[in-house]
Design a protein around this nucleic acid. Structure first.
Lengths: 111, 111
DNA sequence: ATAATTTATCGTAAAAATACGATAATCGCA
DNA sequence: TGCGATTATCGTATTTTTACGATAAATTAT
């Protein structure tokens, strides 16, 4: 890495944001998953309605069941939520462990 | 809102994630901006190279200058970074204020 | 003014995300 | 077994994102 220009107004480097490889991909996937209004709305709903089933979310949102199912899959695969099968339905709640991990990672940026 | 099903395995509601309207859009835009590998890499680079100019980032990444410029615009508009004009070049650094705001918002989720 | 340097924007092609209806799959219960 | 309830998946149309080359815009130095 060659020497870089630097302007006087920027604070010097404070930290390193030490992440790469699979962890970085995982973090980017978490960012991507919540970078969508519908999915953010679903997460918000789950915060106040832990344990609700897919149908509840379908009723709450103005979009088709198939679309909700897709969005839930994205949130699940990104690690924001967990789905527990309860009979024919699926009960959702936040994935506390992964959310804590996310918070730890971004705490590295400028903190 | 009708009564909802709830499974025994989910923890009860702990918080409200109290955000909506313009703030929510702003937060989603921040998530979206970092939900891309290239942009995340740019942010990572800026953490350790505060004050570098666009050209430094172009040299560092394996993509075209026009594409880097677009990505920087997304990060700027989302509030992750600030660009200060220095002659013909543009010097970039993290936007500490907005990053702190982001951290505060996600602290509401399950904490 | 002209030229050199640096970045932004335009136009566009390709890839990915989003949304939907239709249908399949899964589970509990009669 | 067969039915109702619930969710997942498939195929597809539309929109959005991403990437590039070409070119314009802005700034400094000559």
């Amino acid at each position: 890495m060659p020497e870089l220009t630097s302007c006087a107004l920027c604070a010097p480097a404070c930290c390193s944001l030490d992440i790469s490889g699979a962890d970085q991909e995982r973090l980017v996937a978490m960012f991507k998953a919540l970078g969508n209004s519908i999915r953010f709305e679903i997460l918000k709903f789950l915060v106040t309605h832990p344990g609700c089933i897919t149908g509840d979310i379908v009723d709450y949102l103005p979009i088709a069941q198939a679309t909700v199912s897709q969005h839930l899959k994205v949130l699940r695969e990104a690690g924001w939520i967990s789905g527990i099968t309860e009979g024919p339905a699926r009960c959702y709640c936040l994935n506390a462990e992964n959310i804590a991990w996310f918070r730890e990672q971004i705490a590295q940026i400028m903190s």
